[in-house]
Design a protein around this nucleic acid. Structure first.
Lengths: 132, 132
DNA sequence: TTAGGTGCAAAACCTTTGCACACAG
DNA sequence: CTGTGTGCAAAGGTTTTGCACCTAA
């Protein structure tokens, strides 16, 4: 395993990520840390996030707007997300049945080394209430 | 419904999209049309693709590299994709079981207006053979 | 005619990279 | 010390936008 030093910047990124309720962009994460008087650089945030994603501590996905979104990963192994499209609240879900369906579908069409993306977007209870 | 004029540029984009075996980026689509002596502009390709996606004639998704990928949509209604990560071959699949699972999962957590993303990436048979 | 489309180039955007300096180990 | 990490700024990439001209209806 590659070396991974323990700098206060990485701590802050890790903390900010853990404190976020849902997926956050590198940009907004940097903006938030900026506002906390930390002189942290944008590049550092990107590098820290890439490191966290590589080591499995964070999850990443592409937003429809073209940004990369990150979130602290609590569940070990493979899992999926239920995401509120309004407030960003994210719930990690297991999908054993879907896993199997994906494997079978890939196999039926002769595909190998199949990976899959399964995410559900919706309005969480509180956001749905607000919008009523 | 908004007006949608019938220009040769849009025809070419539509044709190129229909002729592609899988998802293609706006950039490569433009490059391909460029090579066919058409003086089509990059902005026009983007605008045409946005229009096709808006009218449901095309599907779009974000590649992990941050590009927007498009594909002609043959199946009506909601569907998912099985995509070769090497050659881009795309197979449209139905996933009734997954649809239901997604609805149930969303409902169980109090989410409303749930949509979902379900795509499988892998190596298709011929690409797997080539790589052996 | 005329509202909308097109091309070009510039701008906006997110992300990566080069480099000198700082710092954890 | 020494090899990494950092900050800054510049560069790289994709996508959008402004504007004058063009064109389908």
């Amino acid at each position: 395993m590659v070396t991974q030093r323990n700098t206060w910047q990485r701590e802050r990124v890790r903390d900010a990520l853990a404190g976020a309720r849902g997926f956050v962009s590198a940009q907004s994460l940097h903006a938030a840390l900026r506002d906390d008087n930390t002189g942290i650089g944008l590049a550092t945030v990107y590098r820290a996030l890439a490191g966290l994603a590589a080591s499995g501590e964070a999850d990443s996905l592409q937003s429809p707007e073209g940004e990369a979104l990150y979130r602290a990963c609590s569940m070990t192994g493979h899992h999926h997300h239920l995401i509120c499209r309004s407030c960003g609240l994210t719930i990690e879900i297991e999908a054993t049945a879907v896993e199997q369906w994906a494997r079978e579908t890939a196999a039926r069409h002769g595909f190998r080394d199949a990976e899959h993306v399964v995410d559900i977007f919706g309005l969480c209870e509180s956001c749905a209430a607000k919008q009523s």
